[in-house]
Design a protein around this nucleic acid. Structure first.
Lengths: 339, 339
DNA sequence: CTGTTAGCGCTTTCAT
DNA sequence: ATGAAAGCGCTAACAG
């Protein structure tokens, strides 16, 4: 691939018969260029298909903006991350900003690596769904002037904005809903408690049970479920056990899917109630439809991007945490009564 | 946000007591630096948390590489694009390359805009799922040395590599499968025929019917379906009509989902057979499971990224089109017999 | 209104 | 083995 030279301001200037500074003025819409010259310059720009070199520009400008941001999410292929990414893109593009994206896979090492990488590349801002439980490594970037906003989970050991779902409240609502239908033996199935959201949803689960006057039975609590297969296994075990739950609360997408699979295999999908945290495509088309505590990833992305751009624009107020409400979506599985 | 100055080579040089060219040598692993000096430089780099400025570097280097690529897909939020994006990321990251991504929304104007934008930003390569039916506007970028590989659909009026599914063959397989179960009245439901893949899948549909000795009934062919709601409406109309089809072939994801919804509402999901083109999450959990002609977006992404990087590395052979095979996945809906 | 000069942070070329 | 000078493409600060 021969990286042919693209035309520069000097080429345009030569063709238009002006100094290259005049070209700079025209290209940047600076005042003080006669219309005739400006027109000559513009037609030369057109003829040569000239485009300013953003790298050279950033080197010289005082604001040092690159008009790029980086999006560090759990996995761009999962629906939650993907919806969030799309919302961010929709905020960035109209502002002339382009978006790098990267997947962290819950790996703190990848988090550090990408933060370093994009810091070196001088992105204006970083939108991060924290993978590790310590974000202090970002302090250097923040000091160097990179705006940082966390999404989905708050940062730890770092004072920045974050935008997260009402995890405790949402989970409590889910449990209240099950309790209202008469359930008292509700299993909790969740991801690793080292993950902030998993912990909070568990907290909401306990609160919800307590509010209903039901005890927390530790034999009905399973953590560390990472894949649908894990969840499938856990549900199978629980329901084959001595005193099985009458309802399941699954604290994450993948876990919900695994639970549905297990219920289906055991023929219990119309018997054991199920409420999942986080919505997923086609949840309404299963039978029964899966009742969920839905998050709003698009709203999270939109709000976080807005916050990020106002920080980039100079807003230096104290860091805030914005909570995005969840919604209970009744579809059938969460309305099954206990036997 | 005060864009504080990051340390430069001069700062490192001053701290290490060497000329800044020596720092450059150490940072770039160039030979000809005494181990003692190199060590001093490295500790200064560490102390100041110095990172080379990629923008400044690209300005001076002869190869002019930015170690960035751009990924222009239909919509980063749809599962096909998202899986493809993830596969590309996995090829790029180990090579030290970062990825811009953008959604085209089937809008040729957006395609042109983003191509221009990323061309100006001097990405090394462009991975494009064409939105418009004319990619000649990319010729200028290709001439300027940007590598281009198309995915999902081939480029038109532009001679570059592309990586696509076996659309005709896959659709034909789907129809052969339905015909083998005895269906002769199979409806086609597809997206706008201006989209290359929609056209090819329709071609496979006709081929498949012809191979089975069944006629193509134009009353059973519906194009221009863009949303699940469109598809739902079309299926409802078809099945309420005088001589309804006994099976449906849905040529796209969204269309398949809309069709499932319609069948469900009419209570016909176990009566009318259905084969969809392109797999989707949870297709196996519906009842009946949805039989699909599955694409392999991860393979498409992996192969396309490999091709792109070999082009960036200098491969100047003639453009090739790589076909990625589809797989028929039997799940129940496609195995229903005609009444 | 237009042009000249300097220099961003870095690599290249050439000297020592 | 080390360094000084030049200059990538651009914008800032200052002339004219």
């Amino acid at each position: 691939m021969d990286r042919a030279r693209r035309p520069t301001m000097r080429d345009v200037a030569a063709r238009a018969g002006v100094s290259f500074k005049t070209v700079s003025r025209v290209v940047n819409d600076e005042p003080g260029v006669s219309p005739q010259l400006a027109a000559r310059v513009r037609s030369a720009v057109e003829a040569l298909d000239y485009r300013p070199h953003p790298g050279a520009r950033v080197l010289r400008r005082t604001d040092r903006r690159t008009a790029t941001i980086a999006l560090l999410l759990e996995d761009v292929a999962n629906p939650f991350s993907a919806a969030l990414a799309r919302a961010v893109e929709d905020e960035a593009v109209p502002r002339g900003v382009v978006v790098f994206s990267a997947s962290l896979d819950e790996d703190p090492g990848r988090e550090r690596g990408f933060v370093r990488e994009f810091g070196a590349r001088h992105v204006d801002g970083l939108l991060l769904a924290p993978a590790g439980d310590d974000q202090s490594h970002l302090a250097a970037e923040v000091r160097a002037g990179t705006a940082v906003v966390c999404v989905d989970r708050p940062a730890r050991n770092l004072d920045v904005d974050s935008v997260v779902s009402t995890n405790v409240l949402g989970a409590r609502d889910g449990l209240r809903h099950l309790a209202a239908a008469g359930h008292r033996r509700v299993a909790f199935l969740g991801d690793r408690p080292s993950i902030d959201t998993a912990r909070r949803r568990f907290e909401g689960y306990r609160d919800g049970l307590a509010a209903a006057g039901a005890p927390v039975d530790p034999r009905l609590v399973v953590h560390d479920l990472r894949t649908p297969a894990d969840a499938d296994g856990a549900v199978t075990a629980l329901l084959s056990g001595p005193r099985p739950p009458t309802a399941l609360f699954t604290a994450q997408n993948m876990v919900t899917v695994g639970a549905v699979r297990a219920l289906r295999r055991m023929g219990l999908e119309h018997v054991v109630a199920l409420v999942g945290f986080d919505d997923f495509p086609l949840a309404d088309l299963l039978s029964p439809g899966v009742t969920v505590v839905a998050q709003d990833p698009a709203a999270i992305g939109r709000i976080a991007a807005g916050l990020l751009f106002s920080r980039i624009a100079g807003d230096a107020g104290p860091p805030r945490t914005r909570l995005v409400p969840t919604t209970l979506v009744r579809r059938g599985s969460g309305e099954l009564p206990p036997p």
